[in-house]
Nucleic acid binder design. Structure first.
Lengths: 358, 358
DNA sequence: CCTCTATGGGATAACGTTTGCGCAAAAAGG
DNA sequence: CCTTTTTGCGCAAACGTTATCCCATAGAGG
């Protein structure tokens, strides 16, 4: 048994081959010590430019990539972040993750994704994995700003940032500026000449609905307009929008009718538009509709395409990433919740009364 | 300058504190050597059960977590995977990622997410980061099965698996079984008594459209039914479905009309249903409609809710993960594309002719 | 010519694990 | 009682980096 095939003992340590090129190889090729090679590649230490260049050339030619595990071991930074989310369809998480990554990738920071339904046990497992992987920071991303993880994050040795999620007191959090977004939406309706602006939105117990309703009331008051009735709370569904529109314009219903509707999200807005259209009302001529989310798959598919509020999730991710880097570097970051701006996207569902779009 | 504050030199190496508990601490507490502690925790080596238990107790009490960077350095496995995707809204990627993670988490494998629009440069950067992080494998997830990354993955030292994406010859890939899904959808239409089944679908140049159309033709032929006209290629949009339905049932159009429509995706199906409804046709009574994707946000919002094909993306992710683990362990995995089953989800948009749902 | 200070670079020791090898003590066999 | 085997455990060397010293050489100043 011993004596045969000893030559393969050093090949294929993990099933396949091509022993990784290390800094030792680079140093050897450049004819310098490992120390010098390391310093040359990291632009530290003192040496002639010629030496530095020689090392760089060798590294280049060999296709050297520093092993970040070894590097992390000594520098005590892994250049990784953990992203915990319970958003199984990724409506919120993926834009956030993309923004996060975009800001990180050129600093060499990568992001672990822990997605999936989060029961307490699973969350514990995810957290444990992140701890073992020595992440430099943890980002908790949620679907709604008033719910957090099923378990508290034990007072961690790494910084934690909450994005679009509930945020324990004293922690750092970023959420879209729901009030500001709502104000922009309603201000736009006012600007196109609407006076009786209703609000149809999601369930009362969501924090976001309360904020958006508040924005709606605020901006109307500032324009010395009365809200059209109470905010109508229901569900985040097309069906709710559809039914509510039907009720609102029921021929047997009240004579007083809105000429503008600000909806709590795009799905509701879509239902509203469908409902209105079916009743023979013209959007935006007879009544203008504005949504919230800029979920393009909806916003662009409504007839007419929907004016709506973009929550800037990509930017939100980027902002959170920047804050995380500061936190990791030990720079002071103001704790508490920061609201990042939303942006109105005007399409064709809003226009002055009687206006016929081309 | 030197002489003041030397006591903080060992604290807070990265801005915050609580020096991590290492295996050395555990060993010390248990009164054994580091070697023994390591073996005790990994269930290897020879020792009395008492010793093992003593070490475990110490580890538990100290809240010890092995440092996977140090571990990876010596074992040459990082227990991480890279997930590359260009799906910015996450419609496909997040379910896949969730499936992937779910199978990985209890084996201690974590997943790096590289999301975002993928130009060649960005992809190169992502690949470089993954290489530096020493991932054990790479998963490439796409939005369509006939497009891959903007650059080839250089013959990597790690296994690569393609999911819902184009797959270079000889590589391992998993995609939903479009043909099978289409067959199930159309078979269902036949089973509820439909005879003239049309197919409205996405752009011709998508591989998925061709496969779904093929499934449509195949199963009809097997039932000795003629396809209702040619497959109608267009866009993956509600609008296309809407317009096509209108044309198809144009009063001035052909007298021959379908009694069932198999749509290439749920958005088209939604548009079709809207179009039909507006023309006064009853779905499913007069005409049954089946979609593809089971994108619940659409499928459940159509009136009536949509019968459609679920692509099983979560399972797809799990399957790919399992294959990846095998590949990493050096077990043989059959190269080439594996098609994983789709599942018909029956809702209310399909029923026998004249049937009135409750 | 002899110091003194830059300058360029190398040895060596970490970082936290796992692992091959060795060595006692205990158990088994004669 | 003396060998052999087994059992239980520790030493030391990896893994690929970076960081802390330290040592040559070279030029500068006297």
């Amino acid at each position: 048994m011993p004596g045969e095939g000893p030559e393969q003992s050093k090949a294929a340590p993990a099933g396949r081959g091509l022993a990784r090129v290390t800094i030792r190889d680079v140093a050897e090729m450049a004819g310098v010590s490992v120390t010098t090679a390391s310093r040359a590649l990291n632009d530290t230490g003192r040496m002639t430019e010629a030496t530095r260049e020689k090392v760089r050339a060798a590294a280049d030619q060999l296709g050297y990539r520093p092993n970040s595990m070894a590097r992390g071991l000594v520098s005590r930074r892994s250049f990784t972040l953990g992203l915990l989310t319970n958003d199984s369809y990724g409506r919120f998480t993926l834009p956030i993750a993309a923004g996060l990554s975009s800001g990180m990738v050129d600093r060499g920071v990568s992001v672990f994704l822990c997605a999936g339904e989060k029961d307490a046990e699973r969350t514990r497992l995810d957290l444990q994995a992140m701890e073992e992987k020595c992440v430099d920071g943890l980002i908790v991303a949620g679907k709604r700003i008033d719910r957090g993880l099923p378990i508290d994050i034990p007072h961690q040795r790494v910084p934690v940032i909450y994005v679009n999620s509930a945020c324990p007191p004293g922690a750092v959090g970023f959420v879209p500026d729901d009030i500001g977004g709502a104000r922009a939406a309603v201000a736009h309706l006012v600007a196109v000449g609407r006076q009786r602006i209703a609000h149809i939105t999601g369930p009362r117990q969501f924090a976001a609905t309360a904020l958006r309703a508040q924005g709606w009331r605020e901006i109307l008051e500032e324009h010395e307009l009365a809200p059209f009735g109470e905010a109508l709370f229901g569900e985040w569904s097309e069906d709710f929008g559809y039914r509510t529109a039907q009720t609102m314009f029921d021929p047997d219903g009240p004579a007083e009718r809105p000429d503008g509707i600000f909806c709590g999200n795009d799905q509701i807005a879509r239902g509203v538009i469908d409902g209105l259209t079916l009743l023979g009302l013209r959007v935006p001529d007879d009544i203008s509709v504005v949504g919230f989310d800029n979920w393009e798959i909806f916003a662009k598919a409504t007839r007419p395409p929907l004016t709506t509020v973009d929550m800037g999730l990509f930017d939100l991710g980027q902002t959170a990433g920047q804050a995380m880097l500061d936190l990791i570097d030990g720079k002071p970051v103001e704790p508490g919740i920061t609201r990042t701006p939303c942006r109105l996207v005007v399409r064709e569902s809003s226009a002055p009364p009687g206006h016929r779009p081309l």
